[in-house]
Amino acid sequence: MGGGFAPIPLKGSTSNQTNLARYVKQKQIMLSRIADSLFWLNRYIERADSLLRVVRTNYILSFDAVDPSDFHWKDILGMFTILDEETILSNGENTATALNYLIADVKNVNAVKVLFVRARENARGVQDNITKEVWEQVNHLYHLINQPEIEKKLTDSRAIEILDRLTKNSVLFYGVTETTMPRGQGWNFMNLGKFIERTILTIEIANAHFKKIDYQLSNPQDILHWRNLLLSLSGYELYLKSYTGGNHNMNVIDQVIMKKNFPRSVFYCLERIKKYLDDIIDETKIEGGDGLQKMFGRLHSKIKFADAGNLDNSDLQNFLISTRQELAEFSKQFSRIYFSYS
C-alpha cells in the first residue's frame, strides 16, 4: 500500500515547470519599523537578562560576605540607574530597596519591569514577524514581572525565587527564539541587537569592577575579588578551567575582553556582530553599507589585535571607554541607515 507521502520532487524534474517561476529568489525586504522593533526587542531582553545575572550574583554572594561593603549595591545602582550620587550612597546598603529599584520600580528606566514592558510593546507591533512561540514567551515575561505583590516578595525570602524565575524565563526567550525563528533578516536584526547590547554590558560591568581597584593592574588581587564579576558574566567555571596561575588581573582581562570561546567576551560578541552585519548588508545591499562595514572593521580589529600584556594601568580605562564609545557610535550610524522611518 502506498504511504501518505507525496512523491519527492527531483531536481531538474520537468513536471512542475510552470510552478518553478514562483520560487524565484527575491531580495529580502523588511519594513524598517519592523527591523527596528526586532532589534530593540532583543536589546531590552538582553539588558534585562544581564541585569538579572548581576543582581542575582550580588544578592547570593552578599550572604557570605565578611565585609558587607564588598557587596555594596552602589556599583550596580550606578550602572543600571540614573539616580544621583547621594541617593545611591544612602541606599547602597539596603538590599530590599535596591532590589525593588532594580527589578520592579517603574521610575527606574532600566528596571526589569520597564525593560520587559518595552520588549512586549516592540513584540506586539511585529506579531506577524515573530513566531507564535516567541510572542507567547514575551507575553509570559510580561505577566511574570507584573505578578501581584512582586514588590513585597522582593523584600522577603521569596526574592531569590523571583530572581530565579525571571532569569530562567529570559533564557527561555533565547531558547524559543533559537528553535522557532526563521533564519531570515528578522533573525539577523534580533541578534545584532542582542550582541551590541551584550558587548556594551560586558564592558560596563567589567569597568565597574576594575574601577574598584582603581585600574591598578600591577597590584595582584585575590580570585575572590573577581568571583563576583565572573559569576555575573556566567564565566567563573570557564575561568577556573582556563587559567591555572599568573596574575588574576591580567587573566580576567584576557577572559572578559579577548577570549574567543567565552560567549560574553567583547571579542566573541564583536565576531557575532560582524557576521550578522555582513549578512544584513549582503541581503539588503543598502546604500552606506560599505561605510558601516569599514567603521565596524576598525573597532573589530582593535580588539582582535590588541595585546593584553601591553595594557598598563592608565590604558585600561581608556581602552574600555573608547571601545564602548565607538560601538555606541556604530550603533547610532547603523540605526540611522536602517531604521529611519519616522
Binding site: 531580495k27 529580502q28 525586504i29 523588511m30 519594513l31 524598517s32 519599523r33 527591523a35 507591533g125 533578516q185 536584526f189 544584513i280 541581503e283 539588503t284 545591499k285 543598502i286 546604500e287 536602517y338 529611519s340 522611518y341 519616522s342
Partner: peptide
C-alpha cells in the same frame, strides 16, 4: 504597515524597508 511606514514621493507610494 502603519502610516509612518509609508511615504508618497512624486505621486507614488513607498514603504520604508531595510533595503531602501
Amino acid at each position: 504597515v502603519e502610516g509612518r511606514d509609508l511615504l508618497v514621493d512624486n505621486h507614488k507610494v513607498y514603504m520604508k524597508t531595510t533595503a531602501g
